[in-house]
């Protein structure tokens, strides 16, 4: 009986780790392929058949990306846009989440169902109208009072930031976190004569600091990787392109195989820093994903 049991358990154990390892190879191999590809010389890239393992790894390709491609500008844009959106979303989500968790006011139930309902609408439905509404903003980007003649807000950072100022998901997430703040603490502060904003900033907010971190990291990674909207707006405004979008829109001018290594090096730069952020702050990020699947 004892031998029988150990055999039964050991076989699946080996099988289990073999399966997990095979899966892990499948997950990691494409990334390694990307790094190897970034380290080849143009000659290795063009050889037939193509040389797979670079003879001497061309680490210099990573430096060349900064001199031969507008990498600095892409990085700056990515950082400016991502940080602005993250800050804005934290502020708007925290304020609204607090109000929806801790007050009953005329329209609050309606607003809450609006927040939940809005999350169901697919983003592609909004791309076309927002694009043209931004273009017709009066007196911006060369437009006249009627919004005609110029490009409106499309040529500015505003076009990349403002449409993402509010995240319905974030409002809901923050509401969940504020629900756990006990009413007694808030009532006690009221009795002490504190105004509602004082209570919000100095009592409620510090209590949901982990929630703010979760939202912040979640939004940061999400927006760093945002492509569709940024691409739509910056096709005509190269000075605003972010890192992933810049790499994508290069393809026409940059597609021959000899420069593929540079393109892959650029891809590495767009991926690796964000992975490091993720590895360091994993637990906050994960909470952002799982909390959303819990309905309150």
């Amino acid at each position: 009986m004892a031998t029988n049991r150990s055999v039964r358990l050991r076989l699946p154990t080996i099988f289990r780790y073999a399966a997990l390892s095979a899966g892990a190879v499948l997950m990691i191999a494409p990334f390694l392929d990307m790094i190897l590809g970034a380290l080849r010389t143009p000659a290795e890239q063009l050889a037939i058949p193509q040389v797979y393992w670079p003879h001497t790894p061309q680490w210099g390709n990573f430096a060349r990306v900064f001199t031969e491609l507008p990498m600095t500008r892409w990085l700056t844009n990515s950082i400016v846009v991502t940080l602005s959106i993250t800050a804005l979303q934290i502020v708007t989500s925290a304020m609204a989440g607090y109000a929806l968790a801790k007050y009953r006011f005329a329209g609050s139930r309606f607003l809450l169902s609006g927040v939940l309902g809005a999350q169901m609408f697919p983003f592609f439905l909004l791309i076309i109208p927002i694009f043209f509404l931004l273009r017709f903003v009066p007196l911006a980007g060369g437009n006249d009072q009627l919004g005609a003649g110029g490009n409106g807000l499309l040529g500015s950072y505003m076009a990349l930031i403002l449409p993402f100022a509010v995240t319905w998901y974030g409002v809901f997430l923050m509401r969940q976190f504020f629900m756990s703040v006990p009413d007694e603490i808030i009532d006690a502060a009221r009795i002490d004569g504190a105004g509602e904003f004082r209570i919000f900033t100095s009592i409620a907010l510090p209590l949901v600091r982990p929630g703010l971190a979760t939202l912040g990291i979640f939004v940061f990674i999400y927006q760093w990787n945002e492509v569709i909207w940024t691409m739509t707006v910056t096709r005509g405004a190269p000075q605003l392109q972010t890192l992933p979008v810049g790499i994508y829109l290069l393809r026409g001018a940059f597609a021959d195989q000899s420069t593929e290594s540079l393109q892959r090096a650029a891809i590495c730069i767009s991926v690796i820093p964000i992975m490091v952020v993720f590895l360091l702050l994993q637990r906050f990020y994960i909470r952002g994903l799982t909390a959303g699947s819990v309905k309150g």
Partner: peptide, 15 residues
């Protein structure tokens, strides 16, 4: 297994 989750779609597609 989570690595692709934080990788941008351009990188995923090109890889």
């Amino acid at each position: 297994y989570w690595l692709p989750m934080v990788t941008n779609i351009v990188a995923i597609a090109y890889i």
